[in-house]
Design a protein around this nucleic acid. Structure first.
Lengths: 235, 235
DNA sequence: CCAAAAGTGTTGCGATTACACCCATGA
DNA sequence: TCATGGGTGTAATCGCAACACTTTTGG
């Protein structure tokens, strides 16, 4: 019961940052500059201070270690095994972030020692960070089947081929181009712009933006985008 | 960075226990026997000890405060606002449990001061426990749309009308009896027994059990049980 | 014999899939 | 003019929602 003396424990945050570059889903990692596990790759982590909330700590730590600010950040899970941190007993609350890589290229580069790795091939991480990444991947697939969160991975304007390669990357499958675009447009979540992106092809692809007003209505249509008997590996 | 001195914080567990009695979804609460907030209703809570994992702590605390053992228990979310506990700064990791009320009636009664309240009408709780319950409700609806976890709320054998009133209670809507049973049976998740439950009606309703082998296959069929344009309040 | 709950079938409609060709353009 | 990726249409099938009557039996 909580009226007894309370034991105190170190509480940390670890951030899994997912990024999309138009083709691949990537993971942001940093190389540790201190012992133990010097030079090994790890997630962005730090301790929660007594005078800040856990959510605030996650924002601060992500910012301190990468320069990233104003990105989508959501709590994933608390990891609480006794021996998970070899230094000292630490409970870690993991968060995941979703960002458009191109947009934050500047913020990231110079000062910070963070690097992007393909989600399909990244180095082994310290402590239980591999487990955290695994869970975050599943959660992303899970959540994206029910919410348009993954648009956080795209620029403010994006083309249909871009959206599709994002979904292809997140679910590691290939959706049928025709059915995919028809379904996606039927959600009324997208607004077509006049402008075209001429980088990807000679013909150029029209840009779209997200219609946030429609986020709630028609949300269920996102289901049929993802949920079919054949592509539910993430369950 | 984690090489600096680590601040230590009290880490607690709070358990949201959902129960089903064949008709209503209920919530298990205890009345505090100590200050602050003496006699107020609260979730089952306690501190995490340095030598036990967070998951282990949740099991221990639930057991200590209710006598419940071997029930389905899943981490919900870490609550980390600075002022959430008025006594001292405490990070609480909330778990939710799903149980069949009838089965654990004995275990619960006597020694413990826990009581069941209808999920639609329970007293206001201490600290941020109301918020925890809200989130747990949503999570349950969310999760049950994708997994057959809610069978944890039923006895080992159960009737179709019982399952349906469980889903009705969880989603606070009424499914069509005919479509519901057809869909549910089509999942092949249920095995019909010869025995009948004669308590609920004169005709009696056949018992079924869950076919755990089929948990993974056909999981996607659970979707169409729940996911329709009209019943997605939980999104 | 009647009340009360269990159980079951059909049909029309809308949604989904599978599939292949034309378009626009820069080089 | 041709290679490259963007964009679109249709037909057949399947699944879903809506809907009402029969069965059983205890009292």
């Amino acid at each position: 019961m909580k009226n007894k003396k309370a034991p105190h424990i170190a509480v940390a945050i670890d951030c899994i940052v997912f990024g999309f570059d138009g083709t691949d889903l990537k993971l942001l990692l940093i190389q540790r500059g201190f012992n133990p596990e010097l030079h090994k790759w790890s997630l962005m982590g730090g301790y929660v201070n007594p005078e800040e909330s856990v959510d605030d700590a996650s924002v601060r730590i992500l910012h301190q270690l990468t320069g990233l600010q104003g990105v989508y950040l959501e709590q994933l899970h608390a990891f609480g095994a006794v021996q998970r941190d070899t230094t000292e007993r630490t409970v870690s609350i993991a968060y995941f972030a979703l960002i458009d890589i191109a947009r934050y290229k500047q913020q990231l580069s110079a000062d910070y020692h963070a690097e992007w790795f393909p989600i399909r091939d990244f180095p082994s991480l310290i402590f239980d960070h591999n487990e955290m990444v695994e869970l975050a991947k599943k959660r992303l697939q899970y959540k994206a089947a029910l919410h348009p969160v993954v648009f956080e991975l795209l620029p403010q304007k994006f083309t249909l081929p871009q959206i599709q390669s994002m979904y292809d990357a997140v679910y590691e499958i290939n959706f049928d181009k025709r059915n995919f675009s028809r379904k996606l447009l039927s959600t009324d979540l997208l607004i077509k712009l006049d402008e075209k992106d001429k980088l990807g092809s000679k013909k150029g692809a029209f840009y779209y933006t997200l219609n946030k007003d429609k986020y709630k209505e028609n949300l269920y249509k996102i289901f049929s985008l993802i949920i079919t008997p054949d592509n539910l590996q993430f369950l």
